[in-house]
Nucleic acid binder design. Structure first.
Lengths: 241, 241
DNA sequence: CAGTATCCTCGAGGATACTG
DNA sequence: CAGTATCCTCGAGGATACTG
């Protein structure tokens, strides 16, 4: 409602920042844009990355973003999806800047409620460099030993990676054993993969070639470099223990 | 409430962007930070720039920003005020980037509800380069001829500019006659001052020296350069008529 | 000037059940 | 899979009156 028509949310504010806050300030909106920037396009894919959002609300937010001209809804033959318009893509630097600011100034260990294995695997799937793996179908299983025992899978096929919470069938070529906080630490740049491997806080077992190239095809959070930089000099920053 | 303690507003999101959205996403928060960045520090001064906010809410937002470590409350002998901490100041580039994005992509004529002479004069006072005026006390009167006849004053003293809605006493050394939308157009970079003067859409009368140097000491919106740039080539962009 | 306390409203959004 | 319709709750924040 706040976005329909030309009624401004902030009276007496002819200011670009007020306009931006009006367009982007609603709960979830920035996270939806982040997901679109990171390459999520299907309704259900976006929904999976936003645990707690209702489909009604996601639908509303996407419609508002379309009306503002940040997102367009492309109807395929059978499946529709959402894409950023040039105006939406023009936000990329600001979104990265905003997250970098938080990463620089508010780095912290993830709390229990912030951690969610499925969401993490989703993000890992989005930034994974599948083109660095041999052609064909690959399955990677993640065995988490804490905070609770849980297995999740990554299915990589035709350069496309998908996160699954059920065994997708083919025998895994690689099994990654670690804890959920440790995988968060590596993905977010708080812990170096090298240190985690050395300390056996993360173990890789399986196909030698895929294991050897792991650090190349396994991508990190877009904010990992900022986080790593901001921890430089902090005692124990890169220790995995 | 959402900000007290460590409860995250977005479950399952260990993501710097989610953290930033959680901290900055509440209504008014970004505009409060903008005002602090632009040099407002007194409670009432911030309040005046946010027409429609209640004092209860402004107080709450400022307290939340203090708890997050973006703002500090410095208690003087008789009057307290609010200042950005280094973490808050570190947001400057993002805030400018966000407003620049909106200025680039959503430039538009101000609507009636977006215009507010007092708020505009407040902003003008904040960016005014008082040090380029001769020492001493100066009064500038703005006579608006539309959308309604209204006069507002700028009082410049000791390098400090204040907006007043009542005659502050000393006879004005300069009278600026224009319409409110025209002054918004100039301040925001949509209309060039030179064109407005040429077309007599804005008239200056008074002390010759202060009049001559007007374009130097009268500052523009921090987003004016972006707005001007985005209008380049657009027909009639710099015309004042 | 710079706030705080209290009471009350209303609308954002959750739950649920439905559809092409 | 990708949504929409309806009903209901509850908490953010406005109004008002107060204080150092």
């Amino acid at each position: 409602m706040a976005h329909s028509g030309t009624v401004s949310a902030y009276a007496g504010q002819y200011c670009p920042l007020a306009k931006a806050a009006e367009m982007l300030g609603d709960r979830w909106t920035l996270l939806i844009l982040r997901d679109l920037l990171m390459g999520a396009h299907r309704f259900t894919d976006i929904e999976r990355g936003l645990p707690g959002i209702s489909r009604t609300l996601l639908s509303q937010r996407l419609r508002a973003l379309q009306q503002l001209g940040l997102v367009e809804h492309r109807a395929g033959e059978r499946r529709a999806d959402y894409w950023l318009t040039p105006v939406g893509r023009d936000l990329e630097a600001v979104v990265l800047g905003l997250g970098s600011w938080a990463a620089r100034n508010f780095g912290h260990e993830p709390s229990r409620e912030e951690m969610n294995g499925r969401v993490l695997l989703l993000w890992i799937a989005r930034v994974l460099r599948a083109q660095l793996l041999p052609d064909g179908r690959h399955v990677v299983r993640f065995d988490f030993t804490a905070p609770r025992r849980e297995s999740l899978w990554l299915l990589i096929d035709q350069g496309d990676a998908t996160a699954c919470d059920e065994d997708p069938g083919p025998r895994p070529e690689l099994v990654v054993t670690t804890t959920l906080p440790m995988l968060y630490g590596i993905f977010s740049g708080r812990t170096s993969l090298r240190a985690a491997l050395r300390d056996e806080a993360l173990r890789l077992e399986g196909d030698p070639e895929i294991t050897r190239s792991f650090s190349r095809w396994f991508g990190l959070s877009p904010f990992a470099a900022v986080t790593r930089e901001s921890l430089k000099g902090t005692a124990g920053a890169v220790s995995a223990s």
